[in-house]
Design a protein around this nucleic acid. Structure first.
Length: 227
DNA sequence: TCATTAAATTGTT
DNA sequence: AACAATTTAATGA
């Protein structure tokens, strides 16, 4: 498949890492750790001290939180090739969300010290951060708009479109490996409702439903669905 | 290469 | 939540 399977391939797809001098890149590789996280396992936990940020080498991670009244909220999903948690490293407070692996995933762990070093010395890394944080802001503004209209079909459409964000994640083909159960976990819907939504989106000609995944036919249409 | 089986996923109630 | 149908992957003749 097209998903990266090693730390090296993740860095090859990360814009900041590509521009590092060989020696610096070697240092980065040396300081990053790789961790296997089983399906439903925590990559990072809400309330815990922030000591690292994370890159998804392979798999799929849900960024979510459970409010005090027990309501689960998914903020976004991070597919292979994506990074998250860098914003948390810029602050001094416990982590505000859970990172949950939706399937067996391979995670690159960047310790705070490495992050700080790149922040202090690497201009491409700083550009990457600004772009990433800005895009996330746009994403969450859009999310707030959508959360009001609780139409499940539209939420699934948005959620899937997000995974194809060309700023946050390296470009991929139109095919996305994701089960309908995972779509359910990601959107907070039951698998049955996710199935129903996917069929509706297929009927609208926006994507093709396949075994173990989908193929996007009209990404722009997915983004706009429900407007 | 083909047949069999188990496991995962999907469509439906 | 439960069920049957379908697809895939693994196994071995």
């Amino acid at each position: 498949m097209s998903t990266p399977s090693s730390l090296q391939s993740l860095l090859a797809q990360s814009p900041w890492a590509c521009e590092l001098a060989p020696a610096d890149r070697e240092r980065a590789v040396r300081e990053l750790q790789v961790r296997e996280v089983p399906a439903n396992g925590l990559v990072c936990a809400k309330g815990a001290p922030v000591t690292a940020c994370f890159g998804v080498i392979d798999g799929l991670v849900k960024i979510a939180s459970v409010s005090s009244d027990g309501k689960a909220v998914t903020f976004t999903g991070v597919p292979a090739g994506g990074w998250f948690g860098e914003g948390s490293l810029l602050k001094e407070e416990p982590r505000r969300y859970d990172g949950v692996a939706l399937r067996d995933s391979l995670i690159a762990v960047m310790p705070r010290a490495t992050f700080q070093w790149l922040l202090d010395t690497c201009l491409p890394f700083n550009r990457f951060l600004i772009r990433q944080l800005n895009e996330r802001l746009a994403q969450f503004i859009a999310l707030v708009e959508f959360e009001r209209m609780l139409l499940p079909d539209a939420r699934v459409a948005r959620c899937l479109a997000q995974l194809f964000n060309p700023v946050l994640y390296p470009p991929r083909g139109p095919r996305l490996d994701i089960s309908q159960g995972e779509v359910g976990y990601l959107t907070g819907l039951s698998r049955q409702r996710a199935n129903q939504a996917l069929q509706a989106l297929e009927g609208a000609g926006l994507l093709k439903v396949e075994y173990g995944g989908i193929t996007v036919l009209d990404l722009e249409g997915l983004r706009r669905f429900g407007d």
